[in-house]
Amino acid sequence: MEIAAVYWESKIKIYGFNHAVNLSLLKMTVETEQMAKMGLCISKLDDLGIGFHLVMAQHSNNHKLHLYLLSSHPWDEKGLKNINKEIRADAESPVQVVSPVELIYFQGPHFGDRYGIAYSAFRILENKNITLLLAGCSGSVIYLVLPEGGAKNAEPFLAEAFEVP
């Protein structure tokens, strides 16, 4: 017989909630063959002093790469046009911006090694009908990107499921 030890808490402990508001979520979609070109374009954004709060990428089965960049940078039409021009030559726009959006994130001990952590956050948002735009969980951190006003709405409910000792 195999015995496995599993660490489980009725209320998951975290180190506290953090948030950032008035952010822009930039979504860029390219063919996977264009990834190197996109890398060069992103690298140039760094040269302009643009940083990030969260980056995320997803691959879809039609050979497309979706890159999400959450930053405080106020993208204007000219900046977006430049990105469009850099990453793709044709006229169809591969860049979308959702703004303003908000971020709430938190970390806890060994989150990446324990089951049920991400679901605990998603369940709360679902039960309270709070729209989730983006979520990224790697390492010991959960990032939740919400529409304007979402962070303030969500935090009291998340605080019911997660405990700050």
Binding site: K27, M56, A57, Q58, H66, Y68, Q96, V98, G112, D113, R114, Y115, A118, F122, T131, L132, L133, L134, A135, G136, C137, S138
Partner: peptide, 10 residues
Amino acid sequence: NMPFVSTSFL
């Protein structure tokens, strides 16, 4: 357990 999760809904 899921050591990595990403979700987008746009």
